[in-house]
Design a binder for these strands. Structure first.
Ligand SMILES: [Mn+2]
Ligand SMILES: [Mn+2]
Ligand SMILES: [Zn+2]
Ligand SMILES: [Zn+2]
Lengths: 138, 138
DNA sequence: TATTAAATAATAACTGTTCCTTTTAAAAAA
DNA sequence: TTTTTTAAAAGGAACAGTTATTATTTAATA
């Protein structure tokens, strides 16, 4: 590998912070906020800063290694990166995965307008089974 | 009409501010933010305050007279209250209505889990036809 | 091991929104 | 009509989540 120095020799460092934040997201299945990730990362790395958590989360999202979903104007993160959607309980706030097939008919309709669809996001709001039961019998 | 004074005699005032904010939303078809509504309302009512705009918008939403949609962690408002969805252009930021039939199959899947679905929100992200053309030929 | 710049910790700044206090004015009462 | 009552408004401070700044640390290279 020559080092002819044509242009930049990009350096990307592998830091403990990045590894830990990534692992925390992979280990979480509850779509944690940045704050929650921070809290969990600190158990491993007590001096990590919130700013670093935010920066690393953004970076990982851009690299496509994690996914960001926004609920109530707050970012939440998850390690699942395949196509799926979410149900949000208005009572307990829980965010749960929903498996739905991509609705071809719906997409077609959008594309017919000349739009280029790059991402699709379905959100279902209501009561999760637990909360529905609880509220049902009160 | 007796005034036996059993319980409260609820008073709801009809203010110029509320009427103007509502009219502005009805007259807009671009899903304006609170700030934009404020800007437009001020043309009619120069002393209206941003706080009032926020409060009235929330009130109207709760009354079901307008709808709030959240894009990029910001509230946007619209006078259309029937079931429809949105396309958001990543280039120009425009939010456009998308007519899609309620996907029964998808809802069934969610309800099978015991969830009570109260609201459904589909968002499509990408390039609107104008931006797609513009970016395509560069 | 010394060098070097990417990434970090700490903290200030920012932004959309909500909250608080005083004032105003819509509508009920006189 | 005029007075009284009090819901709603104005103005501004506070707040929360996030981003930007900067001096310091540290991973990677030689
Ligand atoms: Mn998920
Ligand atoms: Mn719409
Ligand atoms: Zn629940
Ligand atoms: Zn566009």
């Amino acid at each position: 590998m020559e080092k002819v120095e044509t242009g930049r020799t990009r350096k990307k460092r592998n830091t403990r912070q990045k590894a830990v934040v990534y692992q925390v997201v992979l280990d979480s299945n509850d779509h944690p906020t940045a704050e929650k990730v921070y809290e969990r990362a600190r158990r491993e790395l007590p001096n990590i800063s919130l700013g670093t958590v935010y920066r690393v989360l953004k970076e990982l999202s851009q690299e496509g290694k994690i996914k960001e979903i926004i609920v109530n104007k707050q970012s939440h993160f998850e390690g699942r990166t395949d196509f799926h959607h979410h149900f949000i309980c208005r009572a307990c706030g829980k965010i749960e995965d929903v498996e739905t097939p991509l609705c071809r008919y719906t997409c077609k309709k959008v594309e017919q307008k000349g739009y280029v669809v790059e991402d699709i996001e379905y959100k279902f709001y209501g009561l999760c089974s637990k909360c529905a039961q609880k509220l049902g019998k009160e």
